[in-house]
C-alpha cells in the first residue's frame, strides 16, 4: 500500500504566494509614487496660487495709482525700474515655467473685473490652471 500523504506547499502554491506578494508590493509602491507626485504637484499648485495672488495685488497697486490705467484688455505684469512700480507689459509674463495672464473686462461704469490666470504644465501632456478674480473700482470718479 502506497500512502501518498503530502505535506507543506506545492510549487504552484509557492508561485501563487509570490505572485500575490508581487502584486501587493507593486500596488503599494505605485501608491507611494502617487503620494510623492502629489506632494510635488501641490508645491507647484501653491506656487501658482501665490503667483496669481501677486498678480491681483499688482493690479490693485496699478489701480491705486491711477484708476484709468486699468483699461479693458489682456496684459502681462512687470516691474518698471524708474519709477519703480508694477506696470502692464506685453500680454503675459512668465516665472518658473508658469505663465500669468491678466484680463481686464468691464464690470460697470466705474468698476473693472480683473481676472488673473496662471497656467503651467505639471507633466508634458497636462495643463493646470489657477484663476483669481478681483473687482477694481476707479475711486477717483465716484
Amino acid at each position: 500500500m502506497v500512502i501518498n500523504k503530502r505535506r507543506g506547499q506545492s510549487m504552484v502554491e509557492i508561485i501563487m504566494a509570490i505572485a500575490i506578494m508581487t502584486v501587493g508590493i507593486t500596488f503599494s509602491v505605485s501608491i507611494l509614487m502617487i503620494v510623492e507626485k502629489g506632494s510635488v504637484e501641490s508645491t507647484s499648485e501653491m506656487q501658482a496660487i501665490f503667483y496669481a495672488e501677486e498678480g491681483v495685488q499688482a493690479v490693485i497697486s496699478i489701480s491705486d495709482r491711477s484708476g484709468t490705467a486699468v483699461a479693458v484688455g489682456t496684459y502681462g505684469l512687470a516691474i518698471q525700474a524708474s519709477p519703480a512700480e508694477w506696470i502692464f507689459s506685453g500680454t503675459s509674463d512668465t516665472q518658473n515655467g508658469m505663465t500669468r495672464v491678466v484680463t481686464v473686462s468691464t464690470y460697470d461704469a466705474d468698476t473693472k473685473k480683473v481676472d488673473v490666470l496662471v497656467t503651467w504644465k505639471p507633466a508634458p501632456n497636462r495643463t493646470s490652471t489657477v484663476d483669481e478674480q478681483v473687482l477694481v473700482t476707479d475711486w477717483a470718479f465716484l
Binding site: M21, T22, I25, V29, M33, V35, S39, S42, T43, M46
Partner: peptide, 24 residues
C-alpha cells in the same frame, strides 16, 4: 530581498514627502 528594497523605498519616499511638506 524584495521586502527590504520595498521598505527602504518606503522610508526614502516618506522622508522626501515630509521634506517637501516642511519646505512648503
Amino acid at each position: 530581498g524584495t521586502m527590504v528594497i520595498f521598505l527602504v523605498n518606503v522610508v526614502r519616499r516618506e522622508s522626501k514627502v515630509t521634506m517637501v511638506l516642511e519646505v512648503n
